[in-house]
Design a protein around this nucleic acid. Sequence first.
DNA 1: CGACGATTTGAATAGGATCAATGGGAGTGG
DNA 2: CCACTCCCATTGATCCTATTCAAATCGTCG
Lengths: 232, 232
Amino acid sequence: MRSSDLPTVRQLGLFQSMADSSFEKLVQAAYLQTFPAQLELITEGDPADFLYVVIDGSVELFTRWNDRESTMAIVRPVSTFILAAVIKDAVYLMSARTARKSRILIIPSENVREAFAEDDAFARAIVVELASCYRTVVKEQKDLKLRTAVERLANRLLRYDHEQGSQGRIELPYDKRAIASLIGMTPENLSRAFNTLKPYGVSVDGAVVTLGDIDALTRLAKPNRLIDHDAT
Amino acid sequence: MRSSDLPTVRQLGLFQSMADSSFEKLVQAAYLQTFPAQLELITEGDPADFLYVVIDGSVELFTRWNDRESTMAIVRPVSTFILAAVIKDAVYLMSARTARKSRILIIPSENVREAFAEDDAFARAIVVELASCYRTVVKEQKDLKLRTAVERLANRLLRYDHEQGSQGRIELPYDKRAIASLIGMTPENLSRAFNTLKPYGVSVDGAVVTLGDIDALTRLAKPNRLIDHDAT
DNA sequence: CGACGATTTGAATAGGATCAATGGGAGTGG
DNA sequence: CCACTCCCATTGATCCTATTCAAATCGTCG
């Protein structure tokens, strides 16, 4: 793998506290590959043979059932995905495909589980990582069960604004189809939700969204650290 | 605490592999209390001061936002809840109240984190526990995003039937209000969903539900091990 | 320029929520 | 034991939200 990528991976919360020797072993067993956009990397139901680390690009985690499909998450560099399946030596619960051309580090599950068994610091890092993942999904579930589609969109816009420096002007990080599915609605409904938010100062021009009245939008959205914040 | 409860707790996946000394310390620091029904044990947003173990009774995890409320899970004996918050030393994301009179073991968070730091086997048990919790919530999210309310109910009925010995006759484990909220609908809508399922052999008499045509119900529900099963 | 995919808009429908009213036990107190 | 009350569940009517299907528009890329 490219030597310049190594430190980035090493600095991930998941890997930074493990022993050098353990990390070495993991990296030695790993493959770094570049995939074109829209390539299905894993399919839900398959055994979890690898742990994935997105180095560059982005990956969409999605799920299918009965001819319906829903985007569960979009993973951006640098982070891992499907750790839980790997640790439990179970099948993947979600499918994954590259959203764009992506460079991805692939670590065989057995090596991950071996490091987990041998390296105590790594085991504890996994605890922290999984606890974070768990809390993130719980927040998403709260978002889904407690809010309407428009409220979910409003809160997400505020979140993107915050992530992008609170300038009242954001660039949507993914295409609208993906955002719609992520938020749990159809693309058509997303369009209409944007229209519903016009009176709250929201105007859309392609992927650029201007938040002209943050206060009004905030009063509508009622963001909450127990649902919307990333931290803890 | 009652000596007869100790082995049950000790045999939980979370505790069974840890050192005797660590377990001893945890138990020594813990309190066993009996709470009346409908008592709010924890409130979301509060610091996670304790890990909870339901010994007897049952506890509802729920969440509130903007005057709405939703049941996230119901915890039955013997199992723990809010482990992730305790490990991360964060605030609770969910509130909890006893659904009925309950006996509950309460372990101070600091002791849990101390055991986590000192006992490697315990750390690894926490990994497995959190991975399971994570995968459970992911399944619930898939259920919510991919299925209609009637489909969710149909699958849940099949699950209860399976849990209760596949006799085609089940007793609802909680009152309908709770089940409705758990599934993500209103009580009114649950009533109507039961009616919708009548042509599929579902008949309701109080808390007793008869599944007269499992095949038809299954064809409608399309249960899936990546959403509905408990294991892995 | 033309084709394709993504987005938007419109119209109709379905799914679910809300509000209001009624029925039905379980528990309480006389 | 019976009446009363309360809470849960059901039903009806209506409203609102969101999906579906269809068509138009826009922009991008070859």
